[in-house]
């Protein structure tokens, strides 16, 4: 068993420590609307955490706060495991969000820090995702599945401390989404990092995460926490389905949120 599959030592500082006391948006009537209240969680080294909840529950809002896209909230965001260093954060969005006027390789080069550009890192990660042939193509010239893989390649190219995934495989057909999830798991096993996933698909959460946080409808907070048994890359489709059945049939009312 490769060493990185060992669980990190207990008590190691988490990569991400997020505490949102409150996050409000200006409402239609001028009255501020609270979308997140007392949402706090951590993501440990090499741990994959999924946020699951009904749509519109502030999952993406929380992810944007972690990504540094939104700093207007009450609370704190810190990266204790990094010892004060700026975190390398990679994002995989709901859409691939590649620059259509740059080739796939240029899209990857662009997110690298200056000294690491032109060193073959972009080509390496494209090849890793099976896109060696398409490196010089523009995003509009390749399929949506290939664009998603390029978005994954881009995320790993920055050597992330924390990988953020916002419903990364939404709008793909079942088999393709499954293949891409498998590709993501294999890549995470080779090049481990902390991951935070937002999804409304419980099956996807079980497949990709070590720990699932179930969120309430707005104002969002964590209402239940579930640890998924076994190693991520060992879970078969049947394991995933069995665990899903187990979760949704639990008697506590919170599990009805995700059924």
């Amino acid at each position: 068993m490769p060493p990185w599959n060992d669980m990190p030592p207990a008590g190691a500082p988490p990569v991400l420590d997020l505490r949102i006391a409150g996050k409000t948006y200006p409402g239609a009537s001028g009255q501020p609307v609270t979308v997140v209240r007392d949402l706090a969680f951590t993501v440990g080294p090499r741990e994959s955490v999924a946020l699951v909840g009904p749509s519109g529950c502030g999952k993406t809002t929380s992810l944007n706060i972690v990504a540094g896209l939104d700093s207007r909230f009450d609370g704190s965001l810190s990266f204790p495991a990094l010892g004060g260093r700026e975190p390398h954060i990679a994002c995989v969005f709901q859409e691939p969000r590649l620059l259509p006027w740059r080739t796939l390789e240029q899209n990857l080069e662009l997110v690298l820090p200056k000294p690491r550009r032109g060193t073959g890192i972009a080509a390496h990660w494209l090849a890793h995702m099976g896109l060696a042939e398409a490196a010089q193509r523009f995003p509009t010239q390749v399929s949506l599945g290939m664009q998603r893989r390029a978005a994954l390649a881009r995320a790993f190219a920055v050597e992330p401390d924390l990988l953020l995934l916002d419903e990364p495989f939404v709008s793909l057909d079942g088999p393709l989404a499954r293949r891409l999830r498998r590709l993501l798991l294999d890549t995470l096993a080779e090049r481990p990092c902390a991951a935070l996933l937002v999804t409304h698909d419980l099956r996807e959460a079980i497949e990709l995460a070590d720990r699932i946080l179930i969120l309430s409808p707005s104002p969002t907070r964590v209402v239940a926490e579930v640890t998924v048994p076994g190693r991520r890359e060992d879970r078969t489709e049947r394991d995933v389905e069995a665990f899903r059945q187990d979760l949704v049939s639990r008697p506590e009312p919170v599990f009805r949120l995700i059924a």
Partner: peptide, 16 residues
């Protein structure tokens, strides 16, 4: 705005 968010999330420099 999606691409602008991408640029900010990946900490692209102002010039880039």
């Amino acid at each position: 705005e999606g691409l602008m968010d991408m640029a900010r999330a990946y900490r692209l420099s102002r010039y880039d």
